[in-house]
């Protein structure tokens, strides 16, 4: 494949997959937030914060997208891998891998949304469980964080900015 295909696929998968997963996650948690607020408006603040947690994965995806584009100089002038040399193919494949890592680990937004949704339910019943609910939901994000760590290392050391 041409290097440009690897690069753009990698960028698209990072932001696309993680973004879609975040959308699902926020959607699930948002439905719960709506339910909690329908009964008692006092739940609004707590539900809002919990609902926002699954959004982080899409941000990781977006950052990765920009780093991939920067690293390949699609942003900031002059595509770096125009020639179809083995070196260029390897480097663009690394960028693809980085994007894929973030995209796939970003899927953790869906279970995170489900945890957040259950957390919103728990907070609606007993507001004291708010912090615990946040911590539980944050657990699911660990995988996305590891994915981002891996991707950053791949981009920075494998290709360079």
């Amino acid at each position: 494949m041409e290097p440009i295909v690897y690069v753009s696929l990698g960028a698209a998968l990072a932001a696309g997959l993680a973004g879609a997963a975040s959308a699902f996650g926020v959607g699930v948690a948002g439905a719960a937030a709506a339910g909690a607020v329908a009964e008692d408006e006092k739940n609004f603040k707590n539900a809002l914060i919990l609902e926002g947690l699954p959004m982080t994965q899409s941000i990781y995806g977006l950052i990765t997208l920009f780093l991939i584009l920067l690293s390949a100089r699609i942003i900031g002038g002059g595509f770096r891998f125009t020639a179809n040399t083995p070196d260029n193919i390897v480097k663009s494949a690394i960028l693809f891998g980085a994007g894929l890592t973030v995209g796939l680990t970003g899927l953790s937004a869906i279970p995170q949304g489900i945890i957040a949704s259950a957390g919103i339910g728990a907070v609606a019943k007993n507001p004291k469980t708010f912090t615990q609910g946040i911590i539980f939901a944050a657990m699911a994000e660990t995988m996305a964080i590891f994915g981002l760590v891996g991707a950053l290392i791949m981009i920075a050391t494998g290709v360079g900015l």
Binding site: T56, I59, Y60, L62, I63, F66, L67, T142, I145, F146, L148, V149, L152
Partner: peptide
């Protein structure tokens, strides 16, 4: 603890 780095970079990234 790698999250320290990931979140720091996420901030500067955004």
């Amino acid at each position: 603890y790698a999250r320290l780095m990931a979140l720091a970079l996420a901030t500067s990234g955004i």
